[in-house]
Design a binder for these strands. Structure first.
Length: 236
DNA sequence: GTCTGCAAAACTCGTTGGTT
DNA sequence: AACCAACGAGTTTTGCAGAC
């Protein structure tokens, strides 16, 4: 299933200022612009599969993706919800590994693909760019450590509270100021982040609703009381 | 008591075809 | 082209039994 080719130039890109490419100079940016290809993916389409070889990196222009790993029992564990401005696939490429995860569009997604050769040239030439990648990789390592601890030590109820707060941060980036933040994810995806069964997530969401911590409208979830969710999640 | 898995019912959403 | 109803697929919810 392939996406539809589209055209986005870096200087008119809406996320350029928050992307990893913000430190590049004009000539470096021109080169990326020349070599990259941009694609629109529909919901459910796959950008890259686990255990395939990276041929380049993906810069998300618009939309959200779930990044997940499939376990031995066939169940998916969602590692990350990637959003506009995020860069995907560079760690596996730099370490010359296969992709450890799959990236799938959660909605209409616009993505720019930068071939490996051009990306590696940038790493050779731009110190600022390398530092930016290093910072990002270290940050993610820290996040993963936190996630592992959360999954291992917290109850499902606590994990769901932590997950809702994390998703609120992800979704508020795309929400105009003043508007209510809506987390738009299936219950199954939510369960795959929390690491539990869909039914358990639905039951706990029902409890959170009763406690007026959240409100739901169809599949959409609105966090009403983030401070109380912090307490429920035992976050200090 | 907490959580999971299964099954069934209820609900939502996207697609399709007909009508205006 | 716009609107609407019907339909089917997918998703959500609920109840129950059982494992830990």
């Amino acid at each position: 299933m392939r996406g539809r080719r589209i055209s986005i130039t870096c200087d008119e890109c809406s996320v350029h200022k928050i992307s990893k490419f913000k430190s590049l100079n004009d000539s470096e940016l021109d080169r990326i612009n020349y070599h990259k290809s941009c694609t629109a993916y529909k919901k459910g389409q796959i950008l890259f599969h686990e255990d395939t070889r990276p041929l380049g990196v993906f810069c998300i222009n618009a939309g959200k993706l779930k990044v997940y790993k499939t376990g031995d029992d066939g169940k998916d564990q969602i590692i990350q919800i990637a959003k506009s401005g995020d860069l995907l696939g560079y760690r596996a490429m730099i370490s010359e590994d296969l992709y450890p995860v799959t990236a799938e569009a959660l909605e209409e997604v616009k993505v720019c693909f930068i071939p490996k050769s051009e990306f590696m040239k940038l790493i050779d030439e731009s110190h600022d760019f390398v530092m930016m990648l290093l910072k990002d990789a270290c940050q993610e390592l820290g996040d993963m450590t936190g996630m592992m601890t959360t999954l291992a030590q917290k109850s499902v109820r606590e994990r769901l509270a932590v997950t809702l707060l994390m998703l609120k941060r992800v979704y508020e980036a795309d929400t105009p100021e003043g508007e209510e933040i809506e987390i738009n994810l299936t219950r199954e995806d939510l369960a795959n982040i929390v690491g539990t069964a869909t039914e358990t997530v639905i039951r706990l969401l029902h409890d959170f609703k009763e406690e007026e911590l959240i409100r739901t409208s169809g599949r959409k979830i609105m966090v009403l009381e983030p401070e109380r969710l912090v307490k429920v999640g035992n976050i200090y």
